[in-house]
């Protein structure tokens, strides 16, 4: 973990309230693995904000974030040439799948940020399907040109199979990322998830539901194969953080192994290990 000053090389709005920030941070870039995050100091605000590493190579890291409150709105006002105080990389990151095989990544909303880093890393060795769900068309992510130019590893993202879905059907298929991913999970060897709490709870409901009720009701049932795959899937979690380094217990969640800290033991967990009922956001 480094505390470092990163120099903003590029910052652009890539959606209604979504921003891509690319900054020079050689040590952090060298050590970052997919699924890890950095804590960004936002002006005079007492708490740093956790943001996933979206891409990293050639001494730079990229962050993809949505401006939702004081911290991220402050961040969005930073201009190229200014610097930022960050600590990272933090957390465990995803463990990469062995050998080769088919990998399905399920991203809800900003969950696309860490999963793009993983997808880019796996592109050469695996068949990657990236399923991205958003509320509406304007929130779907198209890999920006500047990202491909400045962080070369991300060029591979454009060659991957993307499946896009919106809740309102304004682009791609109508429905959730999870619904769209289900048929692909039938043929997958590995699954990775990142998205809002609601998406994880929906996936959990499917894992927990072992009765075939498809004919009577809205289809919570999924095949034993998918259930097993989801259970073993790696999921990265978002909870409110204080320190980001395992010192304050603000981010502690219940798991089958006992309580775990999202910042230090996670943010990536085995999906079936998380006791979803015990997490409220």
């Amino acid at each position: 973990m480094y505390k470092s000053t990163m120099h903003v090389l590029h910052h652009e709005r890539v959606g209604i309230d979504t921003f891509l920030l690319i900054a020079g941070a050689p040590e952090v870039a060298r050590e970052s693995r997919p699924g890890q995050f950095v804590m960004v100091r936002c002006g005079e605000l007492p708490l740093r904000r956790p943001i996933s590493v979206h891409a990293s190579s050639e001494g730079s890291i990229a962050l993809l974030y949505r401006a939702v409150g004081d911290g991220t709105t402050w961040l969005s006002s930073i201009e190229q040439g200014q610097s930022l105080d960050i600590t990272g990389p933090l957390g465990n990151g995803y463990s990469l799948p062995d050998g080769n095989g088919r990998v399905v990544l399920v991203a809800g909303g900003m969950g696309i940020a860490p999963l793009c880093f993983l997808a880019a890393r796996l592109a050469a060795s695996h068949e990657v399907i990236l399923v991205h769900g958003a509320r509406t068309a304007a929130e779907l992510y198209e890999v920006p040109g500047a990202l491909c130019e400045m962080v070369s590893e991300t060029r591979a993202l454009r060659g991957l199979r993307w499946i896009r879905a919106t809740d309102d059907g304004s682009n791609g298929a109508c429905g959730s990322a999870l619904d769209l991913a289900l048929p692909h999970l039938e043929q997958a060897d590995y699954a990775y998830l990142c998205g809002p709490h609601g998406m994880c709870v929906a996936a959990h409901d499917r894992v927990a539901n072992t009765i075939d009720i498809t004919r009577q009701s809205g289809g919570l049932y999924c095949s034993p194969k998918v259930r097993e795959l989801l259970c073993a899937a790696q999921v990265s979690l978002e909870v409110r953080m204080g320190c980001g380094v395992g010192a304050c217990y603000a981010c502690s969640i219940p798991t089958v192994q006992g309580r775990r800290k999202v910042c230090a033991d996670g943010p990536v967990f085995r999906f079936g290990d998380v006791l979803w009922e015990g997490i409220c956001t």
Binding site: V239, G242, C248
Partner: peptide, 15 residues
């Protein structure tokens, strides 16, 4: 075990 989530919230100049 500690308390239920959320456990931290930022306020004006405080936590």
């Amino acid at each position: 075990e500690g308390n239920e989530q959320p456990r931290i919230w930022e306020t004006d100049a405080g936590v």
